[in-house]
Computed example of a mutant assay.
Amino acid sequence: MFDLGQLELAQDVVGAAMPPTPAYAWPLLSERLGADVIVKHENHTPIGAFKVRGGLVYLDRLKREQPDTVGVISATRGNHGQSLAFAASRYRMKAMIYVPSGNSVEKNRAMRAFGAELVEYGEDFQAAREEAYRRAEATGLHIVPAFHPNLVLGVATYALELLRKAPDLDVLYVPIGQGSGICGCILARDLLGLTIEIVGVQSTEAPSYALSFAAGTVVTTETSNTLADGLATRVPDPDALAIIRKGASRIVQVTDDEVAAAIRAYWTDTHNLAEGAGAAALAAALQEKPKLRGKRVGLVLSGGNIDFELFNRWIVPETAVAGGKVLV
């Protein structure tokens, strides 16, 4: 899909807009897992999520290859749309973003704040995506898919940062939405000649990639009812699936309750706020804790864009106060 030189050039494009995100070793998380843990903090980007990298690289290439392009259109549950809105503002382009009805209020506000024209349509991401493609034909705007080689090239820059800092990881857990993040990690690992095990993470309520991984072909689901909206995918991308099946060891499925527990763990152990998809890697590692003892474990905290109402719904009911302390 790309070589190391192209990945390093993409890193330069991303670096012009933001500094590298930190990769920290948190002792309390290490105690919790019984392993040496490093967290890649993609919640520290200008949009609070790793997707910003893909938008920057995609629009940089689009502007150079198709300079007459006036704007882009796409569908999202939030972070992909914020990425395109952020990048479009830097390249002085229009961004029209479709989201499903009932989408995250705060992510919608953020996309508008970055300059996007927001349109609510359909009951889920797939319906919004299909309408965005129809609207692209009518408006002449450039359609940006949820998965594309240039998006993967962009988000792979976080993997390049992490794996050059921690090439001795034994295993890396990566959440899967449409697949760009885990594909970027797999390709960056291979380009660096490393042998790190990469494990994908999906929701039990949106397991399309996990089912496809097991079946060896694309398997769609009728629903994607997880509260972790960044994991809510019904239709896998076949190109992403091919990379994942070749380069990942397995896909772990986590429940919404396990994700909520991981969000609480991130807050108490690191004082970092994680969205559902952002906490999924930790949720999977906690599920597989017995096999991780003594290993060096990487966790991708892919984003921190969680609505306050959802944070309150997931976190507050599960806490109790005793002796002036919050018990988690």
Rank of each mutant, 00 (worst) to 15 (best):
N150G: 08
A156F: 10
E137R: 13
K94M: 10
Y121F: 12
V119Y: 02
E120A: 15
P149Y: 12
A128Q: 05
F114V: 00
A110S: 09
V155K: 05
A110E: 03
H148R: 09
H142F: 14
L141E: 10
L151H: 00
L118I: 11
R112I: 12
Y133V: 15
G115Y: 06
F147R: 01
P100E: 04
E123I: 15
A132V: 07
A116C: 05
M96D: 01
V155H: 06
P145W: 00
V144G: 08
A128L: 08
G154I: 13
R112W: 05
Q126H: 14
M96W: 05
Y133L: 11
Y98W: 10
I97A: 02
R134M: 04
S101E: 14
G122R: 06
G115Q: 07
K107Q: 06
Y91I: 03
V144H: 08
E106L: 13
A138T: 08
Q126T: 13
G140R: 08
R109F: 12
A110K: 05
R129M: 05
A95M: 03
I143R: 11
A156I: 10
Y133T: 13
E106I: 11
Y121G: 02
D124V: 00
P149F: 11
K107H: 06
G140K: 07
A138G: 00
V152N: 06
E130N: 10
P145V: 06
P100Y: 04
P100L: 04
V105A: 13
A127T: 08
V99K: 03
F125A: 01
F125C: 01
Q126M: 13
M111T: 03
A156D: 03
F147M: 09
P149Q: 12
